[in-house]
């Protein structure tokens, strides 16, 4: 081996045999694949899900603090912009759950071949879109119904 840069990329396996270590992945040289978007999305949705969970804790804290704080929290959750955030949180949790289930399946040793991965990717996207849409629509409908029922009964908030 003459090239010093090449020599630096020689590593050894735990049994001592020499191998050429893989180079760091330079993302820009790769052709676009759905699997790479889905992979990073699992991390991003994990972060969003955490942020949403923090908001959920604040909502719970407002309920614990008293009716006044809870009224403020309801202004946020009843607001279209607030509901958009809630739907985004829901979709992130749904995707992270679907991605997480895929990870558990891979860990168990299944569906990890190239063809299987490429087949399952679009399914994961479809399931996420379907489940998120149905849940979001149903939850918003239920919340809306309850609100308007209470308004008809003449109760405040």
């Amino acid at each position: 081996m003459q090239d010093i840069r090449k020599a630096l990329y020689v590593g050894s396996r735990s049994d001592g045999t020499l191998i050429e270590r893989p180079m760091s992945p330079h993302l820009q040289v790769y052709r676009y694949r759905l699997s790479m978007v889905l992979s990073i999305s699992n991390r991003i949705t994990g972060v969003i899900a955490t942020a949403g969970a923090a908001l959920g804790v604040f909502w719970l804290g407002a309920a614990a603090k008293g009716p006044k704080s809870f009224a403020t929290a309801r202004k946020v959750t009843g607001n279209p912009l607030g509901q958009l955030v809630l739907v985004g949180w829901l979709a992130s949790v749904v995707y992270h759950t679907v991605g997480g289930i895929r990870h558990l399946i891979w860990d168990a040793g299944y569906r990890y071949d190239k063809e299987e991965l490429n087949k399952d990717g679009p399914v994961a996207v479809g399931v996420t879109a379907g489940v998120s849409t149905v849940l979001a629509a149903a939850l918003l409908a239920v919340a809306g119904c309850r609100r308007s029922k209470r308004a008809k009964a003449g109760k405040v908030s």
Binding site: A63, G66, P67, F70, A71, R74, G78, V93, T97, G100, I101, L104, L135, A138, L139, L140, V142, A143, G144, C145, R146, R147, R150, K155, S157
Partner: peptide, 22 residues
């Protein structure tokens, strides 16, 4: 894995709580 049943429970509860008052 533990979060799967726990969060499913939470989503079901949200159907009971959506639009609820204090």
């Amino acid at each position: 894995a533990s979060l799967l049943p726990l969060s499913t429970w939470f989503v079901v509860q949200m159907f009971r709580l959506g639009g609820a008052d204090h």
